[in-house]
């Protein structure tokens, strides 16, 4: 797929805000391109452009103020009936490696894509879900921590 590097960087940056994981950590999953491509394949390039443009505006308005950034993200993107469901799906992909079929209202308003069903992006996407390190654990069936590790207290601190 034709991938614009600048867009990929913006997608990554937006993802750091959505997940509170660093760009380093997100890239480390090896899933950045796969998630970007999944969104483009399902909602189309124009809608991806629209989402990233909206994020650019949010960032500009925030001017490095985290509180404003979070508020603008809700105003411009998460509460937007077109961009909100896509963005929530991006969060879900990062955390669990699956795409979830968009809500019916979205599909009625903005069109049904053939690929828009609930599916696991790939074996690696499942294994790299960020939900698991968040709770100092591992995806069921993969990245096992080793015999007896479960007996000790998990290393989890509030962010």
């Amino acid at each position: 797929m034709d991938m614009n590097n600048e867009q990929l960087d913006e997608f990554l940056e937006m993802s750091t805000v959505l997940t509170a994981f660093s760009a380093y950590k997100l890239k480390g999953t090896g899933q950045l391109e796969a998630y970007f491509n999944t969104v483009v394949e399902i909602v189309g390039k124009a809608t991806m452009d629209e989402l990233l443009n909206a994020y650019r505006k949010v960032k500009k308005a925030a001017n490095n103020d985290e509180t404003v950034l979070n508020k603008q993200l809700r105003f411009q993107i998460l509460s937007n009936d077109k961009l909100g469901p896509i963005t929530r799906n991006i969060i879900k992909m990062w955390f669990i490696g699956s795409w979830y079929q968009l809500p019916n209202a979205w599909r009625e308003n903005y069109g049904e894509a053939e690929k828009d069903s609930t599916f696991v992006i790939s074996t690696n996407a499942y294994i790299e879900g960020l939900l698991w390190p968040t709770i100092d654990s591992h995806p069921p069936g993969a990245k096992a921590p080793g015999y007896g590790t479960w007996a000790s207290k998990p290393q989890i601190s509030e962010l």
Partner: peptide, 16 residues
């Protein structure tokens, strides 16, 4: 309706 840090803290609270 959580994202970012709040989402991560809530995951810990609800799962761990």
């Amino acid at each position: 309706n959580k994202f970012g840090k709040d989402l991560r803290n809530e995951l810990v609270h609800q799962i761990s």
